[in-house]
């Protein structure tokens, strides 16, 4: 091939950012990938994309993150991007009850369109607006427990827990993969997963190629 293929990572994980419109998804993405926050940001039309490479358990992991428009009507376009995602950050706004009540609908969306083993982190964003809080941490925690999600409150504005939320998702994905890899080749030696491989939690054998798995 004429172009250079990026081999600067051990793993490539596709993550989707979902949740109601206006909860701060795009700013979470820009905070995580560029350490930027913009108070005057435009609403997202369609999908946006950014990456960041970081270390997880001594491995170089590239997170390929798709940020989606939150309005319901846009799911006609955005749900195609759930395919192949191994992680999801499901964001609500702690100052808007409705965005929390809709978490269940977003989970249903993921179940319909994403891999069943997808790692999900629920993020209660805008924790800097504690005086306007409409969703208690306890409520969110109990929902996270009953639905089997990780949970964290975050603030893209204050750069609070953004790093940690992504780190946690990536670590969870990594551990699932390690477990699967070990189980898949209990007798074999060696490190297992070839370098630069895209990992699909659901079905590892499908992914012997090194292309990002984001076609529709």
């Amino acid at each position: 091939m004429a172009y250079k293929v990026d081999h600067e990572y051990d793993y490539l994980f596709k993550i989707v950012l979902i949740g109601d419109s206006g909860v701060g998804k795009s700013n979470i993405l820009s905070r995580f990938t560029r350490n930027e926050f913009c108070l005057e940001s435009k609403s997202t039309i369609g999908v946006e994309f950014a990456t960041r490479t970081l270390q997880v358990e001594g491995k170089t992991v590239k997170a390929q993150i798709w940020d989606t428009a939150g309005q319901e009507r846009y799911r006609a376009i955005t749900s195609a991007y759930y395919r192949g995602a191994v992680g999801a950050l499901l964001v609500y706004d702690i100052t808007k009850r409705q965005t929390f009540d809709n978490v269940l609908r977003w989970l249903r969306e993921l179940r319909d369109h994403a891999d069943s083993n997808i790692v999900i982190m629920m993020a209660g964003n805008k924790s800097d607006l504690n005086h306007l809080r409409a969703v208690s941490t306890e409520d969110a925690q109990s929902l996270a427990e009953s639905e089997g999600l990780s949970f964290m409150e975050t603030s893209a504005l204050e750069a609070f827990n953004i790093e940690k939320a992504f780190q946690t998702v990536l670590l969870d994905i990594y551990q699932i993969i390690r477990k699967k890899a070990l189980a898949a080749q209990e007798s074999a030696s060696g490190t297992g997963v070839p370098q630069g491989t895209t990992i699909n939690v659901n079905n590892m054998s499908d992914n012997a190629n090194k292309k990002p798995c984001c076609s529709t």
């Binding site: 039309i45 369609g46 999908v47 994309f49 376009i77 292309k211 076609s215």
Partner: peptide, 11 residues
């Protein structure tokens, strides 16, 4: 490269 127009032309 698995690029389709929905990734850049929807807007």
């Amino acid at each position: 490269e698995m690029i389709n127009p929905s990734m850049y032309a929807s807007q």
